[in-house]
């Protein structure tokens, strides 16, 4: 009955590290996952900030000192970039889900928009918030 009948199946795209040359569309897509996970560090420190704010001035001053230190300025800057990258990447996938922009040229153009657009939006946000 259930004899093992070998069927030639196509390789899974997740084998791309071994068998595929990395493509822009694949890298820009997996970066959405990386930034999505990385942003949880920002959520954690947002919650620390909120809890400190809820518990009173003393706790808040310590937490605020840390969260506005130079290292955390770099951290927030990177997190801001992660948010904007995830944002643009998500919009790109909404376009894909609508069945549009799937031609290779357009898809790659959208990928570059995510890469450069996220940097531009990050710098713009820093300017808007700090000025």
């Amino acid at each position: 009955m259930a004899e093992a009948k070998r069927i030639e199946r196509p390789l899974s795209p997740f084998m791309f590290v071994q068998y595929y040359r990395l493509q822009l569309t694949a890298v820009t897509s997996v970066m959405i996952r990386i930034t999505g996970n990385a942003m949880m560090a920002a959520v954690f420190f947002l919650i620390v900030w909120l809890l400190a704010l809820a518990s009173g001035p003393e706790a808040f001053e310590t937490v605020e000192w840390w969260l506005t230190s130079f290292i955390f300025d770099l951290f927030w800057f990177f997190m801001l970039w992660a948010v904007w990258y995830h944002y643009l990447g998500g919009l790109r996938h909404l376009i894909f889900d609508a069945g549009k922009g799937l031609e290779i040229e357009t898809a790659e153009k959208l990928g570059w928009i995510c890469v450069y657009g996220s940097v531009v939006l990050t710098v713009l946000t820093v300017i808007v918030i700090w000025l």
Binding site: L53, F60, E64, L67, T125, I129
Partner: peptide, 19 residues
């Protein structure tokens, strides 16, 4: 982002007022 970005680092009273 605009709201939180402005609240962060604005001190206890201002942050409390915002939130």
């Amino acid at each position: 982002i605009y709201i939180f970005g402005n609240a962060l680092g604005s001190g206890y009273e201002a942050s409390l007022a915002t939130m």
